[in-house]
Amino acid sequence: MSEPVTQSQLAEVLETMKAMQAQLAELTLEVKVGQAEIREKFNTVDQKFQTMEAKFEEKLNTIEAKIEAVRLEVQTNREQLVDLGKRQGSTENRLWALLVALFLMVVGLLAKITLFDQV
């Protein structure tokens, strides 16, 4: 049934338990150090990510501003083209009026020369 345990056996078991306790304390310390290193690396990565996010947002805002500037420039150019088209139309009308007046003047001069040659 149960065997009597000697004091030397108990001392050996106690030493084994103390060694295990020391190993457990070392492992706990290693785990805590590992957790601290992981936390530090995570914080470093998080800071880098936040920095990259800020740079990305800044560049995105810059691009959006440039797009808005180009859009306004295109709108201004369209308005200028419409204005130039209107001016071109009025210039063409004046040119046609001048050509018609010159044609009528030449026809009138020819008519005067041919019909009223004796003046």
Rank of each mutant, 00 (worst) to 15 (best):
E57A: 13
M52I: 07
L27V: 13
K86E: 14
M1F: 11
L27K: 14
A25R: 06
A36N: 03
Q80G: 06
S8G: 08
S90F: 07
K59M: 07
L84I: 11
E40Q: 07
K86N: 13
V31W: 00
E79Y: 03
T91E: 13
S90C: 01
S2N: 11
K32P: 00
L109E: 10
F42R: 00
D46N: 04
K55I: 02
G108T: 15
Q35E: 11
R94H: 12
E58H: 07
V100N: 09
Q35G: 02
N77H: 09
L115D: 10
A65W: 05
E37W: 05
L72P: 02
L104V: 15
A69D: 15
A22C: 07
F56A: 12
L99P: 01
M105G: 11
V13Q: 15
A19R: 13
E79M: 08
I63M: 08
L99M: 13
S2L: 09
Q21V: 04
V106N: 02
E40H: 05
P4D: 12
V82C: 02
L102H: 04
M1L: 13
K41W: 02
V33W: 05
D46I: 00
G89T: 05
T28G: 06
E73K: 09
N43V: 01
A11W: 05
G85S: 14
E12Q: 13
R39M: 01
M17R: 10
T76C: 05
N93K: 12
N43E: 13
T44Q: 04
N61K: 11
V13P: 01
M1G: 13
D46F: 01
E58C: 01
E12A: 14
I38L: 09
V107Y: 08
Q21T: 11
E68K: 10
Q7H: 06
F49G: 01
K41L: 05
A19F: 06
M52D: 06
E64N: 12
N43P: 00
K48Q: 08
M17D: 07
Q50D: 01
V31M: 04
T51N: 05
V5C: 05
Q88M: 11
L109I: 12
Q118A: 09
T6G: 07
Q35C: 02
Q23A: 09
V82K: 12
G34A: 07
M105A: 15
E53K: 13
M1P: 12
Q7A: 07
A65R: 10
V70N: 13
L84S: 10
L24H: 07
L29H: 10
P4M: 03
T28H: 09
M20I: 12
K32T: 03
T62V: 00
N77Y: 09
M17F: 06
A97E: 15
V100D: 15
Q9Y: 09
Q75H: 11
K32E: 14
Q50G: 00
N43H: 04
G89R: 03
T51W: 00
E3G: 08
Q75Y: 06
T16G: 09
A97Q: 12
A69H: 03
A25F: 04
G108W: 15
K86C: 02
Q7K: 10
Q9V: 05
E79S: 07
E57N: 14
E40K: 06
